[in-house]
Amino acid sequence: MTFKLIINGKTLKGETTTEAVDAATAEKVFKQYANDNGLDGEWTYDDATKTFTITE
């Protein structure tokens, strides 16, 4: 399955995708991506669209 991450950061904005077997796996990938890029914010997830959002 394809999951999307929408980034609404103070300095970084955009989106990225990952292929994962489930939402929990995708969340780990996206949280590592956010950590690697210095993002810290509030996370939301929409199961209907398989989309995570981080807002700083």
Rank of each mutant, 00 (worst) to 15 (best):
I6T: 06
E27V: 11
K31M: 11
D22N: 10
A34P: 01
V29A: 07
A23Y: 10
T25N: 08
E42D: 14
I7K: 02
K4E: 03
K50N: 10
K50T: 06
D46R: 04
T49F: 12
T16F: 12
T53F: 05
F3A: 00
Y33V: 05
V29Y: 15
E19C: 06
Y45I: 02
E19N: 10
G9H: 13
D40T: 12
T18S: 05
Y33D: 02
A34K: 02
I6P: 00
E27M: 15
K10G: 13
T17H: 11
A23L: 07
T44A: 13
T51E: 05
K31I: 15
K10L: 08
K28D: 11
T16A: 13
K13A: 14
I6L: 08
T2L: 15
K50C: 04
T49Y: 07
D47C: 04
E15M: 03
I6G: 02
T25M: 13
I54T: 02
M1W: 10
G41M: 03
T49E: 09
N37I: 10
G14K: 11
K31F: 05
L12P: 02
I6E: 05
T49P: 02
T18Q: 06
K50F: 09
D22R: 03
N37C: 05
A48C: 05
N8M: 15
M1R: 08
A20Q: 06
G9T: 15
N35M: 14
G9R: 09
T17L: 15
T25Q: 14
T49G: 06
Y33G: 01
I54C: 04
F30T: 00
T55D: 08
V21H: 14
E42W: 07
D36I: 11
Y45W: 05
G38Q: 08
L39Q: 04
T53K: 05
F30A: 01
T18V: 15
N8H: 13
T2S: 07
F30L: 06
K28A: 14
T25G: 09
T2G: 08
N37T: 08
K4N: 05
L5E: 00
I6M: 07
T11S: 11
G41R: 01
G14N: 15
K31C: 03
T16P: 03
L39T: 03
I7T: 06
G41Y: 05
Q32M: 14
V29G: 05
D22L: 05
A20R: 03
T2K: 15
E42K: 07
A24V: 13
A26D: 00
N35A: 12
T55V: 06
K13P: 11
G38D: 09
F30Y: 03
T53E: 06
A24H: 14
E56Q: 04
K13S: 11
K31W: 09
N35W: 07
D22V: 03
D22T: 10
D36C: 05
G14Y: 08
T53S: 07
D40I: 12
V29N: 07
A26M: 01
D46L: 05
D22G: 04
D22C: 04
A24D: 06
A20I: 02
K4S: 06
E19D: 08
F30D: 00
I54H: 02
L39K: 02
V21A: 08
I54D: 00
T2E: 10
L5C: 04
K4L: 12
D22A: 03
G14M: 09
T44D: 15
T44F: 14
E27Q: 12
N37L: 11
Q32G: 09
K31S: 06
L39W: 14
W43Y: 03
V29L: 11
D40M: 06
D22S: 07
G38Y: 11
T53G: 03
E19G: 07
I54E: 00
N35I: 14
K4Y: 05
T17M: 07
D40Q: 10
T25E: 13
K31L: 07
E19F: 09
T25I: 09
T11A: 12
G41S: 02
I54S: 01
M1K: 13
I6Y: 07
A26C: 02
A24Q: 14
A34I: 14
G41C: 03
K4V: 13
G9Y: 11
D40P: 05
K10V: 15
A26R: 00
E15R: 04
T2V: 12
V29K: 07
A23C: 05
F3N: 00
E56P: 04
E19S: 10
N35L: 09
A23T: 12
E42G: 09
D36A: 06
A48H: 15
G38E: 13
F30K: 00
Y45C: 01
T49A: 08
I7E: 02
G9N: 06
M1A: 14
T11G: 08
A23E: 10
Y33W: 14
A34L: 06
W43D: 00
K31N: 06
W43I: 09
L12W: 09
A26Q: 00
